[in-house]
Design a binder for these strands. Structure first.
Ligand code: ZN
Ligand code: ZN
Ligand code: ZN
Ligand code: ZN
Lengths: 176, 176
DNA sequence: TGCTAAATGTTATGCTATAACATATCAATC
DNA sequence: GATTGATATGTTATAGCATAACATTTAGCA
């Protein structure tokens, strides 16, 4: 029961270039639709918060997010940011990166999924891949001990392709 | 230190009963030996900090640890705890549980390893298993994208065998 | 309209972690 | 055994992350 099909459920998304404006807009549109379908309120603060998170494929601290919201007159006190983040993470629109105490827009909206993150310590970009918590080692160990998994935190710190020491690419931390 | 055999490098240690006094003492002894061999200073504060962490198979917050150290006259200010924790985690004697902002004594001392944790949200006990970062999904994704992993955070939240809702064991959060 | 629940505004506070600098300890070398 | 340099410890202050608690507003519904 380990690794049926290794490459299949890892819709890797990551450090390669892409049409990021489309990436953001289509994700926002899907979020909007998801909220309608599930009777969730996608208020201006929440929408803008998600947009801010999506603008970079980087994790943002709650206070970083708050700073942007504050600049735009959408709220000044910490609960503003944390409430928006609570909504976004509950809805599956964003994830918390535990290793950074920071938050990132979800690359695979809506579904209840078990994300895994590759975090570049040099350029700070973050890629999200999907895993299946019941597969892999964690699942093996859990089954072996009779542990029931409800949520997983799977994060790898290291260097993304652009920040490898040997291949001296121009490190471009933009939409990586 | 890269284990070929998939099922082999998961020296699960966990929620089952064991001789915990021996578990603590032998671990401390191994730590002591490791420090001698590697010219590390296992000072009273560091030794006691590890002992405190090992006493329960639970994660302790830095300030929880500090409270105990303070009661024993080993220091009162936060840096006391954080310095001890820095030493212990650097030496591989303890790990930080990112999902809890808390620290736990290592069950597999000394070696440079990639731990995975099963964290029971009911009784708060934590089991440590070993993984190989280069294997499993994270490794697959990393290879696929050209990402170089230097450190992994792998944690599962859920219910340990004793805290399953159906089987109504007496939940015994002691040395689980 | 009036009721209710949810969202937002606001203040205060708690928990987590580190910066910075002074002092003490220890071991190696002279 | 004094000099010296590196490591560890003591201490104060502050930065960074997160939530409690309560007031007010807004949106949906009877
Ligand atoms: Zn993009
Ligand atoms: Zn996601
Ligand atoms: Zn034990
Ligand atoms: Zn360990």
């Amino acid at each position: 029961m380990t690794d049926k099909n290794p490459a299949r459920d890892m819709s890797t998304l990551g450090f390669h270039a892409h049409d990021h404006t489309h990436c953001v807009n289509s994700t926002l549109a899907r979020a909007e639709r998801y909220c309608v379908e599930n009777k969730l309120k996608f208020t201006p603060i929440r929408r803008r918060a998600l947009e801010i998170l999506l603008e970079e494929h980087r994790a943002l601290g709650a206070y970083d997010l708050l700073a942007v919201l504050a600049r735009e007159g959408l709220g000044t006190a910490p609960p503003v940011a944390y409430r928006a983040l609570d909504f976004l993470t509950s809805a599956g629109f964003a994830h918390k990166i535990e290793g950074l105490n920071a938050y990132i827009g979800c690359a695979h909206l809506g579904a209840d999924h078990a994300p895994a993150f590759l975090i570049c310590t040099a350029c700070k970009s973050v890629a999200e891949a999907e895993t299946d918590a019941t597969q892999g080692r964690l699942g093996d160990v859990a089954r072996a001990t009779g542990f029931t998994i409800s949520h997983t935190v799977i994060e790898a710190l290291g260097l993304c392709p652009k920040c490898q020491p040997d291949d001296n690419n121009a490190a471009d931390p933009s939409c990586a």
